[in-house]
């Protein structure tokens, strides 16, 4: 277990943990898993241990107090931390370790998309936001592009609101609409997995619940991993929940288990609202 002797906290001895393997519980295959994942910012180890397995077509939520490493972990999954942090260990995407330099990180990110905390539409029209990446990848057929725009916006449940103003600037949309547009933008490139980093933290309650509905529909087509601050949100939408604390995944189980009978004391304290 001792990976980095310079980190004293690893020496504390026994740590209460409970990480389940979803493949033993559900029929869904595992699409993404990490093995021996460690993340370092300079000399600081941000993630000590966080080995989880994510089942296909399920929503897995990562919860935990701020600074617990849940976002760092998520951003490592599609290597958004490249150049920012050093990530060691294996990230197995459908059995292929993508945490290797010879992997084409752009193709990998096309398959493992990400939506961020703050909506970040490009300062282009709504239509161009959706088609931008496709055009860059060489899709020029207008009909095909139109189709992708419609299906992506429909999947992201924003089509009805924007279908008449596709040529208008995306920045003119409300925050909640912008975030759903970002989801539409992410699914336009036909990813396999969607990573969402606190996507609702900048939204009002109405927009948030709309977003949650959207996610529940999206899981039929995509595997979703979502970091959230909001425990109710995790409870409402996720199938699996991982609890992170101080750079470790301490507990990972079916969401109902985590919220009703967690096995780890710290998880219990956290979901009960005792700290965090």
């Amino acid at each position: 277990m001792l990976i980095n002797p310079s980190s004293p906290r690893l020496d504390d001895g026994w740590l209460e943990r409970n990480i389940v393997d979803p493949s033993l519980k559900s029929q869904q295959p595992i699409v993404l898993e990490t093995q021996q994942l460690h993340v370092y910012y300079g000399d600081n180890e941000a993630i000590h241990e966080g080995d989880l397995k994510f089942p296909e077509h399920q929503i897995s939520a990562l919860i935990g107090p701020s600074g617990s490493g849940k976002s760092t972990y998520l951003r490592s999954l599609n290597r958004m931390n490249d150049g920012i942090a050093r990530v060691s260990g294996e990230i197995l995407y459908r059995g292929v370790d993508v945490n290797r330099p010879e992997i084409d990180v752009y193709e990998m990110r096309r398959r493992i998309g990400m939506v961020f905390q703050r909506p970040n539409p490009f300062s282009k029209s709504i239509y161009d936001n959706i088609t931008f990446a496709l055009k860059r990848r060489g899709v020029t057929d207008k009909k095909e592009l139109d189709e992708v725009v419609e299906t992506s916006l429909k999947q992201a449940a924003i089509w009805d609101e924007v279908k008449d103003k596709l040529t208008k600037s995306a920045l003119a949309l409300s925050g909640g609409q912008q975030q759903r547009l970002c989801i539409a933008r992410a699914i336009a490139v036909k990813p396999d997995i969607l990573l969402l980093d606190e996507p609702a933290s900048a939204l009002d309650p109405v927009s948030t619940s709309k977003l949650e509905e959207t996610l529940l529909k999206l899981k039929e087509d995509y595997t979703i991993i979502i970091v959230t601050h909001n425990m109710q949100q995790a409870a409402r939408i996720s199938d699996y929940t991982a609890f992170f604390n101080m750079g470790r995944a301490l507990e990972y189980d079916e969401t109902s288990q985590i919220f009703t009978s967690p096995k780890v004391q710290l998880t219990n304290d956290y979901v009960a609202g005792d700290f965090g």
């Binding site: 995407y93 292929v96 992997i103 084409d104 990180v105 752009y106 193709e107 990998m108 990848r137 060489g138």
Partner: peptide
């Protein structure tokens, strides 16, 4: 995933 993409 090992093939070098246009982006790369």
């Amino acid at each position: 995933l090992l093939k070098r993409s246009k982006a790369a």
